[in-house]
């Protein structure tokens, strides 16, 4: 097991290093000089040169990368061109919305998908299976903002149980959770539909295995064989999809964030791109990529927890 973890850790470190170099060089290669951009079109060449020197832009590329990497490791992602505030602080603020939202959405998706996938697999080929799978097909096909609008109409406008949008901040935890609930549900539904389908097909394949027959010959009922033997064996593909979904939920919630007026990471990136605030884009992309790599690492570790054959 230790060997496995160490190997994964090495691969985690290398991926992070490679990703950081890639992100750094892409922003460097984009035409346009940050110094002249910050000073506007009417700036004197001397002023631009002075600022370039101050920002370290006159140094050779590898040195600038190391300089930048050192800053990143110390928590310094640079300053936003437009807001003149530290990028790290901006991202941290947005993460307070995006991270809990993604986690809630993923948890909801799993909670919805698990019983549906198990139900459909237990009734594979019969009417219940066909009906549930048709519903998940619709769930995948319909865009999540449409669900979002329906949820707002029902729970915010008609029943007035939950707010229609906005985020009060974590000073009021109950209110904050309430305002994240509807967007989390809207995000979770399509993901739950995908997850349920993956779980069902993984389960159906597992249920055809010889050891399920052994379990039945032991005296386990069909349901017990499914929950005690098939479920864990079907988890690997489900974990893979969950890892991908989490990455998507973290940054891909932009439409939902807009529908609910949430100050999330997706909106920050969108605004930064429209304003050509490359330092913010760079910082946000770096954080997202690091999150994805980290999640992949965690998924790899969970494989080994599930399957003893991988613990070598």
């Amino acid at each position: 097991m230790l060997r496995y973890v160490i190997r994964r850790l090495i691969s985690l470190g290398l991926s992070l290093l490679l990703a950081s170099a890639l992100i750094f060089s892409v922003v460097e290669l984009v035409p346009g000089d940050p110094a002249s951009f910050m000073l506007g079109t009417g700036a004197q060449p001397e002023t631009v040169a002075a600022l370039r020197q101050q920002m370290g832009l006159d140094l050779p590329l590898p040195l600038r990368y190391l300089h930048w990497l050192g800053g990143v490791l110390a928590g310094d992602l640079g300053h936003s061109f437009t807001y003149k505030t530290p990028v790290a602080g901006m991202i941290l603020d947005r993460m307070q919305v995006s991270l809990p939202l993604a986690l809630m959405a993923l948890a909801l998706a799993v909670l919805i998908a698990l019983p549906i996938g198990m139900f459909a697999a237990a009734r594979r080929g019969r009417a219940g299976d066909t009906g549930v799978m048709a519903a998940t097909q619709v769930g995948i096909a319909l865009p999540n903002f449409w669900f979002a609008m329906l949820l707002v109409l029902l729970f915010a406008v008609k029943l007035r149980w939950l707010p229609a949008g906005g985020f009060p901040g974590w000073d009021h935890p109950a209110a904050a959770l309430k305002s994240l609930l509807l967007p989390a549900v809207a995000l979770a539904l399509p993901q739950a539909a995908i997850l349920a389908r993956v779980l069902r097909s993984a389960l159906v394949e597992t249920l055809g295995q010889d050891y399920i027959r052994t379990a039945r010959a032991k005296g386990l009922s069909a349901g017990q064989a499914l929950s005690r033997h098939a479920l864990r064996n079907a988890l690997i593909p489900v974990l893979t999809i969950m890892g991908m979904q989490f990455s998507f939920l973290l940054a891909g919630a932009i439409i939902i964030e807009n529908v609910f007026y949430l100050p999330g990471l997706g909106r920050l990136i969108f605004q930064a791109i429209t304003q050509r605030d490359l330092i913010v884009v760079q910082g946000a992309v770096l954080v997202l990529v690091a999150a994805v790599i980290l999640v992949t690492f965690l998924v790899d570790l969970s494989y080994a927890l599930v399957d003893p054959r991988l613990r070598r």
Partner: peptide, 15 residues
């Protein structure tokens, strides 16, 4: 009780 032909796959690999 019953046992089957293929011992390589007759047992749950995760237990």
């Amino acid at each position: 009780g019953m046992i089957f032909q293929e011992p390589m796959t007759a047992l749950n690999p995760l237990m």
